[in-house]
């Protein structure tokens, strides 16, 4: 009896445990802010990114049509998500949890902020706080930027980082850099993490045969690994560093899954010849029926002739 009561109490507590698992974001992440102000442009780009990456689970903001998962993803236009600070949303999207995927290596920092910009556009009372200057403890007061270039001869992508301040531009040295290449689904890391040399250059080898678009273009994004020291700078650039690929539609050639006009030749032949052969013989057999009839007719005429009968034979 005690045992049963215990089980029942446990069962009753279970749902509240599940609900109670709040998604806690570390304090130092909560206050993080976007480096750029949210504008109509950032909102529009954010919407595109949202449609591609988030819509399948979270649905259309404001319409509560997110899919049924446990825990539920929630509608971004609602209190559930809007009550998060910018830094919290950024962290949750970046880190992911359970069925909510991590977008750290799918979207760049800027892209995540653009999605946040889109999500915030459903909140009338939202007032953005923008991070004033790029916090770089290594180069105080300087604006840090990156440039990407492709070296055809060595098949390497060069990331050149520099810090510009009133006193001039200096290379950013000793900074860890990651390079990502845009693929169909998210982004792929290119080479290992590299450190900028005395000239502020980090070099990444592009793998052989990395597929680009029809011209061989690939979208690269570079970012610092140590954001605290160098700021959350990232750079997206399209470089002609890939193998040109002219995409062939899956239904362009003959295939098992294609329409009948584009069926594999062997199957058309096998089916066609098989049917033709069997039905050819069937027709042949039908002709035999005619032969039997002709022989019979001739025979009965013979008989009636030899018997001198005048009346027509039966049939």
């Amino acid at each position: 009896m005690k045992y049963t009561t215990g089980v029942i109490i446990c069962l009753m507590l279970l749902p509240s445990f599940a609900r109670g698992q709040d998604w806690v974001v570390p304090d130092d992440r909560k206050g993080r802010l976007s480096t750029f102000p949210f504008t109509d442009d950032t909102r529009k780009e954010g919407e595109k990114l949202y449609q591609v990456n988030c819509h399948s689970c979270h649905g259309d903001p404001g319409r509560n049509n997110f899919i049924a998962l446990q825990p539920p993803p929630g509608d971004p236009a609602t209190e559930k998500i809007q009550r998060n600070s910018d830094g919290e949303i950024f962290h949750k999207v970046s880190a992911g949890r359970g069925q909510m995927p991590s977008f750290r290596s799918v979207l760049t920092t800027d892209e995540i902020w653009k999605v946040v910009s889109f999500i915030r556009s459903f909140n009338r009372s939202y007032v953005q706080k923008v991070m004033q200057v790029i916090t770089s403890s290594a180069y105080p007061g300087a604006i840090i930027s990156m440039k990407l270039a492709y070296d055809e001869a060595t098949k390497q992508v060069l990331v050149i980082a520099s810090a510009t301040s009133e006193t001039g531009t200096v290379p950013v040295t000793g900074a860890g850099v990651r390079l990502l290449a845009a693929r169909y689904f998210g982004k792929m890391a290119v080479d290992e993490e590299k450190t900028t040399d005395v000239n502020g250059v980090a070099t990444f080898s592009v793998p052989e045969g990395l597929r680009g678009d029809t011209a061989g273009n690939i979208g690269f994004s570079a970012m610092f690994t140590d954001e605290a020291t160098f700021g959350s700078v990232s750079k997206d650039t399209v470089l002609m560093a890939g193998m040109p690929v002219i995409p062939v539609s899956l239904t362009a050639n003959r295939a098992m899954w294609n329409t009948v006009r584009k069926a594999p030749v062997w199957i058309i032949l096998a089916y066609g010849l098989g049917v033709l052969a069997v039905w050819g013989f069937i027709v042949l057999v039908m002709f035999k029926l005619r032969d039997i009839f002709t022989v019979g007719t001739a025979l009965s005429e013979n008989i009636s002739a030899s018997h001198g009968q005048t009346e027509p034979t039966k049939n």
Binding site: K288, D291, F293, V295, G296, T297, S300
Partner: peptide, 16 residues
């Protein structure tokens, strides 16, 4: 089909 039990007919029938 005007079957007369003729050997020729039986032969055709056998083939068919």
């Amino acid at each position: 089909f005007r079957w007369m039990h003729h050997e020729v007919q039986y032969r055709i029938l056998g083939q068919a």
